[in-house]
Every structure is written in C-alpha cells, then in structure tokens.
Amino acid sequence: MAHSGIDVLTMGSNFWRLLGGLWITIRIALVASIIGILLGSLLGILRTLPNRPLRVVLRLYLEFFRIVPTVVLLFLFYYILPKQFNLNLPANQVATLVFALWVAAEMSDIVRGALQSVSTHQREAGQAIGLNYWQLQRYVLIPQAWPLCLPATVNLLTRVVKTTSLLMLISVMDVINIGQQIIEANNKTDPNGVFWIYGIIFLFYFLINYPLSRWAKHLTQHQLEATHL
C-alpha cells in the first residue's frame, strides 16, 4: 500500500494537539467577538449623537482599524505595548485585545448604519410621546435596528474566525501554528503529511464558518421578506 501520509494525523497525540490549537483559535475569536460586539454597539450608539468632536474621534478609530491591515495591528500591539507601555501581555491576550478592538470598530459602523436607517418619523413619533434620548434608543430605535445589524454581524464573525489564521505570526499556538509544527516535525518521514494537516485545518474552518455563513444568508433572506410585507 502506498504511503499516503494520513498517519500524520493519527500518530501520537497529533490530532489532539490540533484540536487543542483549534480551541485556542475559537476561544480568541469568541472572547474578542463578545467584547467587540458589546463595545462596538455602544460606540455605534454614541456615533449617532449630535456631538461632532466625539463623532470625529470615533470615526478616526474606525478608519484606523479598518485601513491598517490586521497583521500590522498584531505586530504593533505585540511589539509596542511591551516596549512603550511596559505592558507584557501573553500573545493570546494581545491577539484577543487586537481582535476585540477591530471587531468593535467594525461593529460600531454596522450599528450606526442600522440606527440611522430607522426612519426619522419613528424618531419623531417617539419624541412626540415624551421619550427622552435613552428611552428613545431603548424602546424605539434599538429594537428596530438590531434585526438590521444581524446579517452583517454574523458576516463579521466569519471574518474574525478566518483572520485568526494570522495569529501564528505573533506565535499564538493556534490550530495553524500547531499544524505547521507537526508538518515540520514529520517532514522527513511523511512529506505528504502537509496535505492532510492543511486538509483537516480546512475542514475545521469550514465546519465553523459554513453554518455561520448559512445563518447570515438566512437572516438576510428573512429580512428581505419582512420588508416586503
């Protein structure tokens, strides 16, 4: 029987190590997304305030995180935080921080857009019954805006999961980094192992992102139907 290289996956604890790496990936993506979505929602609401200086600052924040490539952000935080601010965070936490700030920036734009797309008439009807600013947000604008946010937010999550593949560059032991180690350790004996390792990594990412992307599609469809009622 020809040597296919599949035993790379079954040798020793390789498969479990890959799963461990996957867990690191998922944990970073999940924690960063939760923090980012909460922070970003708040920033998005603040961006609809008529306060111009505040809007400019938040806009700059958004543009910074949107324009600067994630790799550069990761390096910036990984090397600058310890040097300039004497803050030595483990790579996992740097990664979580960078991703959370990035998600918050993107989320703030999604939330701002959704809030502003609720019609002025709704805003005025709320004001006319005496609601104050936060009551208007809570009872009128946010409940109508959040279904509009959902598809874009789920899409953002799939991007977060995919972008975790950059984490190996700041030596986070994520699934790709572990895979790379296994490949290098077995390069001599199993030159074809690389296909199996990356094959399984592909499968992992697919299993996470495919349901998310189906969900986003479903939500968009649902929304289209709702608006055409």
């Binding site: 008439h121 709704q122 005025e124 009807a125 709320g126 006319a128 019954i129 005496g130 609601l131 104050n132 009551q135 009872y139 009128v140 409940p143 109508q144």
Partner: peptide, 28 residues
C-alpha cells in the same frame, strides 16, 4: 401637547396596546 402625524408612525415592533402604553408607563 400630543401630536398625530400624517404617516401614523406607530412603532412596528410593538402591539397596539404596547404602542399606547409606552408613554403613560415609561414617560409618565
């Protein structure tokens, strides 16, 4: 000073009763 608009502008995510009660319960 109550106001009624040309385009009604009921809150679509709330029932008739919830639309009406919002002001008296939350504002007043």
């Amino acid at each position: 000073i109550g106001m009624v608009f040309q385009s009604y502008d009921l809150f679509p995510n709330r029932t008739v009763l919830e639309n009406i009660l919002l002001g008296p319960l939350k504002v007043q």
